[in-house]
Amino acid sequence: MNARDRRLLEGKRVLVTGGSRGLGSAICKEFGSQGASVAFNYSNDAEGAAKTLAAVEATGARALAFRASVLDEAALASMVKDIEGAWEGIDILVNNAGMSQPLPLPLMEPSDWDLVMDVNAKGSFLAARAVLRGMIRRRGGAILNIGSLAGIRLIEAPAHYAASKAAVKGLTQSLAKEVARYNIRVNCLAPGLLEDGVGQSLPEHRLEEYVRHTALGRVGTLAEVAAFAAFLVSARNSYMNGETILMDGGL
């Protein structure tokens, strides 16, 4: 087997947040088939989590699932402890857990703002902090934050969601600078509209509008985003740091 054929994430230990469905689930499966041991968390969807777990195991990879909100510091800490106990470390974190609500400004309550900002931005900070403690001690790792086109370009997206994803971009830059000295890279992958997941709450005409404006003329698939995510956190991508990469079919 030559280097090109070797699996991208052979032997890597990964934590993906929000793995019970959507993009997170796709990332878990892709990473498993690329040779990684895959742990993931979710906060509600036990059924989806069981499916992801089975699908990762079907790739032949080790898998662990945890019911733990990214906003629950104690639960995050105990999850990280369990994973590190089982696998002796975590090499890669994907901050994928996220949410949105299709709310125009006049209908957006401060509590809505707080919830979306918390899950998307604060959750990424808390998960990163929980995992970095070990990564820094072992002096190596990679973090991939899932951002969004909505945090970078002017598109129609709820204000709190766009703000939270812009925050994730900023978090990526700051963390990349702070932990680079420990051989840890931090990047952000910002998809455009995908076939499934948070974008599904868009009204039909918005979806059409998006597809019309995208050079490729279609929405993205979860699998193609997951495949690129695997490359971004792999050792092949060794010099990219602090970057936010758009993946939107050419808008």
Partner: peptide, 9 residues
């Protein structure tokens, strides 16, 4: 002994 609890960090 954690590097993030150091002055340089």
């Amino acid at each position: 002994d954690h590097p993030w609890f150091t002055w340089s960090h």
